[in-house]
Design a protein around this nucleic acid. Structure first.
Lengths: 364, 364
DNA sequence: GGTTAGCACTCCGATGGATGGAGTGCCAAA
DNA sequence: TTTGGCACTCCATCCATCGGAGTGCTAACC
């Protein structure tokens, strides 16, 4: 072969693609004979080409006298250059629309549903991830009087999320005290980070509350907890049982590794946060993963972008021989739908009034 | 044998217990020889007893010339009559305290942690369940003005839980309109079930809102959604990978069944809701389960009671030969600790003020 | 009567060839 | 450069063997 080391001849590409496709479909090593149907030349020629592809690192042989299997490099080349666009069937599109469009208001819920859909449609294990949120800043406080000694504290954050705390105190106060508390908090605390609340501020607030100054201490503590508790992020996994249909995971230790990594959510979350940076899709093949338990699996995911910010990601986990075409198309379809859901364009079929657009209202 | 069919002689109990204990520990069928160390008689005698125990249904033989294995009935008798009290080690108790006592405010979070602890301490798969909540009744509404056309709607339910909705409308209204909305809602809507909100009520509210009557329609719809969305209940599962260490689950179809049942949360939730009724612990052994995928597993759980109401349950799932003694003790320890956490007795190490008791504040 | 020693029997699981087939590598011819 | 042919390799399957663990049963024993 007079090809440079990097460039593959068209026929080599064709053969590689055929091997990957066939192996994705069947899971068995691919011999030269079965390829004859798709490649217009004899098995001997194909064998020669396969030998070269192996030498270049795109193929592997489980043992002599077995067919060829794509290597990680082979899969990588496949997803980068060879994979075809998969058109979702009408049924699949309908399923996404039907399930996802049933008016879901909460991001958590949307993500859980999307994870489940991803798993159902692709037949791999699906996941949805909510990124760790940085410390929030409260822009508005409200206190709702419930009963003597009891009220609900509501905090509205700059990102639109709302946190509430049920407060019971052994102090005597009435609804007027609670209202005063709210206005005091709004006056002194809004827009501040926890570290910016100083002792003088505390004292000023206690003075403003006059005879109810006892409220301030406990409430500040509560606010501090609520703010710093923040959002740990979250990873929902759906359809782990689907892994079992692939012989790759019939080995218990293999499966245990992956399941363990899924439990140990942090590793996966880190991996995805890191990889998500630029590309439209994240595709992590085998040992490209930073987590060694994932070294025999592929993770494909796509971030959900709202207002230019990533608000989550959905993806699937499966064997190296994943149906990349279908998975990519499915994730595209899902994220597109979710983006629509999250954007403010949902129209309400109602008389004269315009549509209420309830944003994601995430709470902790 | 002149024993009645029902009553087991002391020696039979002793043998049955020894077999169950040994089988729980080792997983292999138990022969008559190994029992000689614990039972003061010859292997032949033990064989005779074992044959009778088998005839009575307490033991099974995988095949002739194998040792005996407890049947489901055997396990049932064991947990009902033979299991010994297991005393948790200081380390285990310390771990519960340390992990659980770190000031967790939210029920969801407590349950997730408890599930994880249950799994870690017992080495089986742990789960935590939050029961489905019936339709809630809103006792108080509040609307927080954010910006023109935007406000946060807060609903406080009779059970103390709080729901919030971020509302954006293409209507023009100011903070005064929002305040009026809140008071109108409080006047007409509090304490009503969704079905009790009639057309006359709607009309009255629109009249009360005067020029902002356009707000009512969308907001009512939102409230209706929030109420009926209610709480679907939730099941968190932790440590599925631990199942893989038991040879019972090395069979893929077996494992797949259980994993599938865990995904399909409803079945398990029903099973637990049904069983939870009276007993302090729920123990569902093998085919006692209503879900056939669980027919080769045991589910042990215990409900968490607060103020006389069940607010959740935690438990573990594992093979029939589960270490019942340890599991029961662990669940007791966990539920006890959680009950403490939930009760209002946490003292705050603070100057003059009394402790703020933040209840569970569950949101959806 | 219950208990025990002994013994023949059963059955599983591991071991260890044979066997056949799929697939390759290589060579020589086209 | 491609192709047909052929020897070779290696795995997967099957089958037979074999040892051991454990049993059931019987006869002796207390």
């Amino acid at each position: 072969m007079e090809n440079g080391e990097r460039v593959l001849s068209d026929r080599k590409k064709q053969i590689l693609k055929a091997i990957v496709d066939a192996h994705i479909a069947g899971g068995e090593p691919i011999g030269s004979k079965v390829l004859m149907q798709q490649i217009a030349c004899s098995s001997a020629t194909i064998r020669n080409e396969m030998a070269e592809l192996e030498e270049m690192g795109y193929l592997e042989q489980p043992h002599t006298s077995a067919g060829r299997v794509p290597s990680e490099l082979g899969y990588r080349f496949y997803v980068d250059s060879l994979v075809e666009h998969y058109a979702m069937t009408a049924r699949e599109i309908a399923q996404i629309n039907q399930v996802l469009k049933t008016k879901m208001s909460e991001l958590d819920q949307i993500l859980a549903t999307a994870s489940s859909l991803a798993s159902n449609l692709t037949n791999y294990t699906g996941f949805a991830l909510k990124p760790r949120a940085k410390e929030i800043t409260v822009v508005k406080y409200e206190a709702i009087y419930i009963a003597p000694g009891q009220f609900v504290l509501v905090m509205v954050a700059d990102d639109g999320s709302v946190k509430t705390r049920n407060v019971k105190l052994d102090l005597v106060f009435d609804s007027a005290s609670v209202a005063r508390l709210a206005s005091t908090l709004n006056q002194y605390m809004t827009g501040r980070r926890a570290s910016e609340v100083t002792l003088p501020t505390m004292v000023a607030m206690e003075e403003a509350m006059a005879e109810d100054s006892g409220l301030i201490g406990p409430v500040i503590k509560l606010i501090y907890e609520a703010i710093s508790e923040s959002d740990r992020g979250d990873l929902k996994v759906t359809g782990v049982d689907r892994l079992l249909q692939y012989p790759e995971y019939s080995d218990a230790s293999q499966l245990k590794g992956v399941l363990g990594a899924l439990e140990q959510k942090n590793d996966l979350m880190d991996m995805i946060s890191n990889a998500a940076a630029d590309k439209p899709h994240g595709i992590v093949i085998g040992s490209e993963a930073s987590v060694k338990e994932m070294n025999n699996s592929t993770v494909v995911f796509k971030t959900i972008v709202k207002d230019g910010k990533s608000v989550g990601a959905i993806g699937v986990i499966g064997p190296l021989r994943m149906d990349y075409a279908k998975v990519l198309a499915t994730l595209d379809g899902l994220t597109g739908n979710i983006a629509d859901l999250l954007s403010d364009t949902a129209a309400l079929p109602e008389g004269g009034t315009k549509a209420p657009k309830n944003d994601q209202n995430e709470e902790k």
